[in-house]
Write a protein that binds this DNA or RNA. Sequence first.
DNA 1: CATCCTCTGTGACTTAGTCACATACTTGTC
DNA 2: GACAAGTATGTGACTAAGTCACAGAGGATG
Lengths: 226, 226
Amino acid sequence: MISDPNIIDRLTTQFRFLQYADADFVRNFFNTSTIVQLASDQAICQQGMHCSHLALVIEGTARVYKIGENGREITLYRIGPGESCILTASCIMSNKPFPAFAVSEEPIKALIVSTADVVRWSNQEAAWRDYLFQLISDRLSDVISVVEEVAFRRVDRRLANYLLQHTDHGNRRMQVTHQSIASDLGTSREVVSRILKDFEQQQMISTSRGTITLEDRDRLSEKLAE
Amino acid sequence: MISDPNIIDRLTTQFRFLQYADADFVRNFFNTSTIVQLASDQAICQQGMHCSHLALVIEGTARVYKIGENGREITLYRIGPGESCILTASCIMSNKPFPAFAVSEEPIKALIVSTADVVRWSNQEAAWRDYLFQLISDRLSDVISVVEEVAFRRVDRRLANYLLQHTDHGNRRMQVTHQSIASDLGTSREVVSRILKDFEQQQMISTSRGTITLEDRDRLSEKLAE
DNA sequence: CATCCTCTGTGACTTAGTCACATACTTGTC
DNA sequence: GACAAGTATGTGACTAAGTCACAGAGGATG
């Protein structure tokens, strides 16, 4: 039950479907949902689990990923504020086990909704339905992009892209280990280390334990097209 | 407009949501949809296209795939009878361009529904909505499996699996080129040729131009676990 | 049977992933 | 400050996968 008008206000701004939804539904929504907090690096869903709740992320991010037989990982997509773990919704609607893992990457604040409500509301409220549909469609696009990446693109280009995405002109430095990059890209730590070393020798980046600094953004960008 | 009672009967059996749906909706559904036929190897959707119709497959199959920069292909999933090109639906609902290609693999007979009806019905009829939701969820699972495959599994195991999936004890022979296997698995023709040659030398299969015959199903299955 | 087209085979090379182990950097503890 | 433990990175040697260029082989057609 959520009653603080400030919080309600903020959530209504963040989850736009609440603005388009029926007043009755909105009242019901805040009556039956609750807010939870979660620390970093906490398991949210385990592969094979049946989901009993849907989490709508208010603050923080989560990473949804697969683990291979050999222990390697690959990130399928991330969930940020305003989004929700739609795989959960998908499992709820089709009553199947969750096909991946999800962990919090930063401390998370989230709205929790029971599966029963998820299903009931999808029959009652068009705005809620559209929200779910939109999310799951977006995830499908995300995952299709991942397929394209791993099936066709070279690791050095993908890594260059990763570095460019995770920095900007204001902030040339990132705190990240080779292993976590490898887990994102679905490759192995050694491969990442070697390519980074190569980039460093070409003076595109500099590295130290746990950090990477972009030294020549333009030349790194050229890598992408090459 | 579909009026033949035999056809209506058959479609109602095949598309189960019609059994659970409201009588008004069903009447409307058959009034506004049409049946089309399509030959083999016809382009259904091009990447980047905007979709104006949703096709529900009655007979035949279609393949949905990505093409990489280098020209290689990878199959995301197939659409069979009773299913529909849900990516289209997803594009319709979120008004985005289609992110892949789709072609007919066999002659296709399909029901065609306009985007306007797709959206309208999803607001009116729970059974239709559930059908769409189920399909898109299934596709998401499919594509996640593809990610897992290409990111973590060795090509020889995936190929062994492919051969086992496409034959059975009654029909040990398949008509297929190395290139089309490669396009399914997202690898290159040469790699497929070499692995098949290897399987042949181990007497698990025999090959001739355009056909592969399983000779030792059990030993090929062992490859999977190995 | 000559020609064309498609399909398959192969060597040489590059890129990616695996395995085993060596170094290095941090942090906490005595 | 010395040391140990834990985490992060570096590297060689090897296997697997993808690329490129080209050689043949098998069917179809005139």
